[in-house]
């Protein structure tokens, strides 16, 4: 369906930063008290880069994405986002009263874009990614993996420069999860997107990313940033999982998270 041949990525060394977070602090106020979710987080994501954020639950990973998406403003710190943002969630959030194509068109509809143009664009995407026969189906008629692919196309329909993935695969069963992660990865690479991936799955993060930021427990601080370099460059996530350096990164990040745990 989707060809997972290694992409020949042209490495241009004009590193344009798409997302720039500087010294972000986030404090949530509720009736019961205040919660410091993030403390002094700085992170830069460059054009075309896939950056993962891993960390224990409640470490403010999703908060970072919400800040990048502009859904939250940080209590202090600077946020610069160059370009438009698309968001993918753990659950596909497809609207069960809309058909597949109509679901994909929700973004262009809201942004009052030319719907004919958007429709053609979405139809092409659906065709490319093997969903053209299901265009007029309702979401409940699709499998979990297909639904998540529709959700991705819905995100791509507004042609975002930066795609945020918030545990986008964790609701899927293991097998589907690996293949869909692989597919989504190739699609995003092919469409030349920049991606920020939040996950608690270390293996997923390593296999998909160029860089990984490890967050500490609440309040989330960046403990470590790893540049992921496999012996074989330009492989797909599934192939990366077999790379000899995979284990090395896994153990390093695992340790980071474990040490973290012992503190509490």
């Amino acid at each position: 369906m989707i060809d997972c041949q290694p992409e020949k990525r042209e490495v241009t060394y004009i590193l344009k930063d798409k997302v720039h977070l500087k010294n972000i602090t986030m404090v949530f106020q509720t009736r019961k008290g205040e919660t410091e979710a993030l403390r002094g987080v700085s992170l830069t994501v460059y054009q075309g880069e896939f950056v993962s954020i891993v960390g224990p639950s409640g470490s403010g990973k999703s908060t970072i994405l919400n800040i990048i998406a502009g859904l939250l403003s940080p209590s202090s710190g600077e946020v610069e986002v160059d370009g438009t943002v698309g968001y993918m969630f753990q659950r596909d959030c497809l609207f069960e009263w809309r058909t597949v194509i109509k679901n994909c068109l929700i973004g262009p509809e809201i942004q009052k874009q030319d719907l004919n143009l958007a429709r053609r664009n979405v139809e092409n995407l659906l065709k490319t990614y093997g969903l053209e026969d299901f265009m007029n189906y309702y979401p409940h008629q699709l499998s979990g993996g297909m639904r998540q692919r529709v959700a991705l196309i819905r995100t791509l329909a507004v042609n975002p420069d930066i795609v945020l993935l918030d545990e986008a695969f964790s609701a899927l069963d293991y097998q589907t999860r690996l293949t869909i992660a692989d597919e989504v990865w190739s699609i995003l690479r092919r469409e030349n997107k920049t991606a920020v991936i939040v996950t608690h799955d270390i293996a997923e993060a390593i296999s998909m990313s160029d860089r990984i930021a490890v967050l500490s427990r609440r309040p989330g601080e960046i403990k470590n940033i790893y540049d992921i370099e496999f012996t074989q460059k330009g492989n797909s996530p599934l192939q990366n999982r077999k790379d000899e350096r995979f284990r090395y990164y896994f153990e390093r990040i695992w340790e980071d998270l474990e040490i973290n745990d012992k503190k509490y």
Binding site: Y87, I106, E109, I110
Partner: peptide, 20 residues
């Protein structure tokens, strides 16, 4: 999360009411 999705597309409150 559906509401959040629409917000991420830049929807205002009226659009959220109407679309979701």
């Amino acid at each position: 999360e559906k509401i959040k999705l629409l917000k991420s597309f830049g929807a205002n409150k009226f659009t959220i009411l109407r679309k979701v």
